[in-house]
Design a binder for these strands. Structure first.
Lengths: 189, 189
DNA sequence: TCGAAATGTAAGCAGTTGCTTACATGGCGC
DNA sequence: GCGCCATGTAAGCAACTGCTTACATTTCGA
């Protein structure tokens, strides 16, 4: 950021700074707990410009989420998706994009843009995960797996020192995968 | 409520009405999204009385949570706790107390009273669930199970028509229990 | 009966939120 | 050089938040 002090006025750079700041803050705090003033401040920009360039906080969120958080979905083969997602989630210093994904998925609230974006993202994950089982109720099983990932992300984000926060990521991955495998493989009770 | 129109002024009844209204609203919307004005309105009471009787919104939340949501913990034998919790969560019209439990457990935010209460409640559940496994990392496994329940509660509360919302509760219970059993029973990879 | 304490009410304060408006200024085509 | 538009700024609005204050009314013991 602020690489080129060349042009003193640069709408593209300003837009990018706002997008950057918003990505980081939405990832750290979620949608509701992030203020437009926070975003403008981190971007080093007057907050009125946020509205000039994006129209509203909702629209800015949509702009941030466009593309973000979908790379995994497109890059990973279904068999490895869950494992990769877990590993990314458990990284000590998660990439903002990944972090944003989990914050989005577990976002509370029926309000505004966030809810619809969350739903669409979740649906995509369920679609991929459901290809892993032959069970009739594959969607349900896939959604249960996704719910698990979301729950783990939740608990980790709100607790400071519980086992989930300090445990070896490999161990967590191993345990969750074993449970998920049971869920996806067994068809009968 | 409002059984006795006898005494026109009744601090106990007013307190109870506030507590009732707060229980319902906190269960439905969570802590942050519930307003003191909402609570006072539902209780049919002047909002200043909320502060006279409880001091603050935080304190009111603490009063609501005192006792609530712990009956299951004390009443159920550990082996049946997970199953019972799941069933309660999946009930079509959950009792306010149960609903409150899940809303509390999945409450976001580092702020205020809610966070500490959530943590204490979660710790209690982990303690009980961890007795179900002999693995060394029983706490971690228990926390993963709890995270699953929380995740399911999350996903159900934010989506209107996904499989999780419409599926047969028995089926969900069966699937989750099978996954959790794998998680708790297997010690080696 | 009467006065203090308990109970209830209306109004508003100070802070925060998303968003708008009226204005200043820099840069580019002519 | 000059004028116009893109860019940036300061201030503030209206709604909402938790909470407080100053005041009215009821209740009940003495």
């Amino acid at each position: 950021m602020t690489a080129e002090p060349a042009r003193r006025r640069d709408s593209a750079a300003t837009r990018a700074a706002l997008l950057d700041a918003a990505t980081g803050l939405f990832a750290e705090r979620g949608f509701a707990r992030t203020t437009v003033r926070d975003i403008a401040a981190r971007a080093g920009v007057n907050q009125a410009l946020l509205f000039r360039y994006f129209g509203s906080k909702d629209a800015l969120y949509a702009a941030v989420m466009a593309g973000q958080g979908r790379e995994l979905l497109e890059a990973e083969q279904p068999e490895r998706l869950l494992e990769t997602v877990l590993r990314r989630m458990l990284e000590k210093t998660p990439r903002p994009g990944d972090h944003l994904l989990f914050t989005a998925l577990r976002s509370e609230g029926i309000d505004s843009a966030a809810a619809e974006i969350r739903k669409a993202l979740g649906d995509d994950y369920i679609r991929v995960l459901s290809t892993l089982t032959e069970a009739e109720d594959g969607d349900l099983r896939a959604e249960l797996v996704l719910a698990w990932v979301i729950g783990i992300s939740m608990v980790r984000s709100t607790s400071a020192k519980e086992p989930l926060k300090s445990a070896d990521p490999e161990e967590i991955v191993r345990l969750v995968l074993s449970g998920a495998r049971t869920l996806l493989e067994r068809t009968e009770g």
